[in-house]
């Protein structure tokens, strides 16, 4: 049985400085996850050379894989640090910040591009108001099941981190936003906004930037059928393309 555990962590002091690697050796405790090991480093921030250093910083919140905060690259693959169980990982464990977003510090990145994408695809229902307007539309169980799955997206960024088409230099909206557009196009409130969503997706950075690598669906922690969403939006924009050609 192992009694220590080595973490190799890619650190960076701020957005401008260059990254460096630092190793930490901590006590091995069975059934740990990456977060609890990072917490252990906090209580004793000493690197493998025995130097006292600033504790590693990361972002986390719910620790049960529903908030999407603690996404990072663990042993080369994107994952939530809370659900990355030590006993299932190859050692030493290598932690890196996500590579598709600007690094803020250590393992923290700025994912505001993803939230901006949600604005662009207008991922909301345009409500008439929040007063009592009676019950909403009825919905079949089968539609609910499809929509529910899509709505579990927590904007964690796994899909776009693993996507070869999503780079720091382009403005691809990414699978998460495309999936949200599909979700809200299912919700039959306001067809205008459906068309507007498709308009956005028929521009640079939209659906046509998908390269069909399909990594998104493989890494999605919520097993959202992202390729299905991409294909569905592909179908919707195909229809709109057709309509545009013959309407114009």
């Amino acid at each position: 049985m192992l009694d220590t555990l080595t973490f190799k962590i890619k650190r960076q002091n701020n957005a401008e400085s260059s990254p460096y690697w630092e190793n930490f050796v901590i006590q091995y405790i069975p059934n740990s996850n990456v977060i609890s090991c990072l917490m252990d480093i906090q209580t004793n921030p000493v690197n493998s050379k025995g130097e006292k250093v600033a504790p590693v910083v990361w972002q986390s919140n719910c620790l049960e894989e529903v908030c999407g905060s603690c996404t990072m690259v663990i042993n080369g693959k994107v994952h939530q640090a809370c659900s990355a169980l030590i006993d299932k990982l190859e050692k030493p464990i290598i932690l890196e910040p996500m590579s598709k977003f600007p690094v803020i510090r250590d393992l923290i990145v700025d994912r505001s591009r993803m939230f901006d994408a949600l604005k662009k695809v207008q991922a909301w229902v345009s409500a008439d108001g929040y007063h009592d307007l009676g019950p909403g539309d009825s919905q079949s169980q089968s539609v609910q099941e499809v929509a529910y799955k899509l709505s579990e997206c927590m904007t964690c960024g796994c899909c776009v981190e693993a996507c070869p088409q999503y780079t720091k230099d382009n403005n691809f909206l990414g699978a998460a936003a495309i999936n949200q557009a599909r979700l809200f196009n299912i919700h039959q409130k306001g067809n205008d906004i459906t068309e507007q969503r498709l308009d956005t997706l028929m521009q640079e950075g939209g659906i046509s930037d998908c390269g069909n690598a399909q990594n998104c669906v493989e890494v999605c922690p919520k097993s959202i059928p992202l390729t299905e969403s991409i294909a569905e939006i592909g179908r919707q924009v195909s229809g709109k393309l057709w309509r545009n050609i013959f309407k114009a």
Partner: peptide, 19 residues
């Protein structure tokens, strides 16, 4: 297209290989 992407060899999925 070929130049607008990022090489990420650690994602060893079949469809990524096809890509």
């Amino acid at each position: 297209l070929v130049f607008d992407n990022k090489i990420q060899p650690s994602y060893t999925y079949f469809s990524h290989l096809l890509y």
